[in-house]
Design a protein around this nucleic acid. Structure first.
Lengths: 341, 341
DNA sequence: TTGAAAGCGCTAACAC
DNA sequence: GTGTTAGCGCTTTCAA
């Protein structure tokens, strides 16, 4: 059996409560006793039992991280590693640990969240996605459990939830405007899963830009795919089979763009000469495509960092008011766009 | 305050222990009482407190996942997401949760591991890397704490630790043999961080293949870089500045290969016409490079899955004997290799 | 400034 | 089959 607070107390000739106070560095303990107790802890190799502490405390110092259903797909995309990197950094600084969701389906995940909340496993929850008809958020809201959303609440009053997001609408609009400015009129859109709010926002931005430019919206220029890998490739096939092919593409995600470029290459459609492309995220390898891709940097790392920051604030002060943080984005011009002749 | 086991007991007119037994579905409870108790749980909306359970139980049903120091670098590489995907799958099946390390330096991580172990936060630990002078493994070994290593123990008796690995030596040898068979004699090697055992193994395989082929080893053909992104590019510069440039490259990692191809392209060295390349891992995007890369599939997902499987076995039966699992690899031929004229 | 003791919610040994 | 009860190791009143 491991050494407990009682052992330390005995050794230092004090009461267990005193040891506890020393651990939390209470100001009402004399320096002398503190020293003596610390000594004893060292000698015995004492380490607190975190479960016992959590039980007495009702605080776990851990954050639950909920990934979209099926990490299967999620983790394919460097977005998640990168956002977790941001989360990790802040969490470590503040002495929090991370507890990861493992469920694959929406229902499994909801079950897990319930366990985390009811079971007292975590002090707060980070939602790494915003889905259109999500059940997790309503649950959390209903129970007044601290959480922060990365993304944007949908069908839920924004003032009721703290979230960290990009202005994806604007980003998509800017990017489309940019292609229009380069002289493109036939601009296709390859979007992600329509269940995700980010996809909805992207599409609206794209549509608005075209409308502003008096370019007619063509249904057949818009393709959606859930899978980042095959998705990009399938989408290309669809778009290239159209009579009047697009000359430029707005692509939901950099990884998709890899697939898109690859596929176009196979069809001898050259980027950027025959096709311009802009996409989103600017993950690490985005600059390593051939040609290097023009993309919107959404500062994924910051999304994670800020969200964690907000969450910890909320945990520390449950009555803090809800907050909306927009992380700025930035168009990174590389070599997948070209002016129309 | 949440509803506890006592509330349920009162409601169902039984003792708390009975409720506990119903929860664990003990066979010594009559179906009738079980029903009654379950009814009460439903009515009251009971959910067990996991901290209390862990405290009484000395079991947390969670696995600690330790990433190499600085997830900063680690997560850049799709290897980790993919291995976690494997872990996640098995863990979920078996009802285990995942607790992630967040430390950046080796010391921080060792501290975290100690916390996990002493603090009773996890039942077992998964080590996602094998470093040459690692302190975590000795610690775990010394404390007889259940853990499984993904990779290979170094400077530690293999029979003392359960590990899941590829035969990286052989993979590197095969790959180099392959290039030799294609007629290459000037074969460069771009390796990862030499602190990692996998890098050591790769290099040995490479050297052995050259030796077997009676090709002299050239120091200047061997370059190591820790960072996957810049690494590949820097390495190319070094290798291309040599008088007698290599005609083929063995690259430690697919992501590096993206950088390598990119850089070669900039120098108008075309792959595979002017340079053949083979690398390792076969992550999702590996087939999306231009040209698609020839690489060794190491079945990352299986590494994670098997390791988790072994760990859970060890947790359930601490006296089970240590085991060594080698996940097979497979050369995936795509388009970055060409026969020398 | 310190100690005694109650309790956090659950499990498991022991009794019946 | 079911109940009683003593912990698990810590925190936190309340007293002194």
């Amino acid at each position: 059996m491991a050494v407990t607070i009682k052992d330390v107390a005995r050794r230092a000739n004090v009461a267990p409560s005193t040891v506890s106070r020393v651990i939390s560095n209470s100001s009402r303990i004399s320096e002398k006793t503190k020293e003596r107790v610390r000594e004893a802890m060292k000698e015995l190799g004492y380490h607190p039992n975190l479960n016992a502490r959590s039980l007495a405390n009702k605080s776990t110092k851990t954050i639950g991280v909920i990934m979209p259903n099926s990490a299967k797909v999620a983790f394919q995309n460097p977005f998640f590693p990168e956002v977790i990197r941001g989360i990790t950094t802040k969490a470590y600084q503040e002495g929090y640990g991370l507890y990861l969701s493992t469920g694959q389906t929406e229902d499994e995940i909801l079950e897990e969240v319930k366990q985390m909340v009811y079971g007292g496993r975590v002090d707060g929850i980070l939602l790494l996605y915003s889905r259109v008809n999500d059940k997790v958020m309503p649950f959390l809201l209903e129970h007044g459990f601290p959480f922060v959303l990365i993304g944007r609440p949908y069908n839920i009053d924004e003032s009721k939830v703290t979230f960290v997001n990009n202005d994806n609408y604007k980003a998509a609009k800017t990017v489309t405007d940019y292609l229009v400015l380069l002289g493109h009129k036939r601009i296709g859109f390859i979007g992600g899963n329509l269940d995700y709010v980010v996809t909805v926002d992207h599409m609206k931005g794209y549509e608005q830009a075209l409308q502003n430019a008096n370019i007619e919206l063509r249904e057949d220029y818009i393709v959606h795919h859930a899978e980042v890998k095959e998705g990009g490739q399938d989408a290309v096939i669809e778009l290239m089979s159209i009579d009047q092919r697009p000359t430029a593409l707005v692509v939901a995600d950099d990884i998709m763009t890899f697939g898109v470029i690859r596929m176009l290459e196979d069809m001898e459609v050259h980027v950027p000469d025959d096709m311009s492309i802009v996409s989103f995220n600017n993950v690490m390898i985005s600059e390593l495509s051939s040609p290097p891709m023009t993309t919107v940097d959404i500062h994924i790392y910051d999304l994670g960092l800020q969200a964690t920051h907000c969450l910890i604030n909320k945990i520390n002060d449950p009555d803090i008011e809800e907050k909306k943080v927009i992380i700025p984005h930035r168009l990174i011009k590389r070599q997948t766009c070209k002016k129309m002749e």
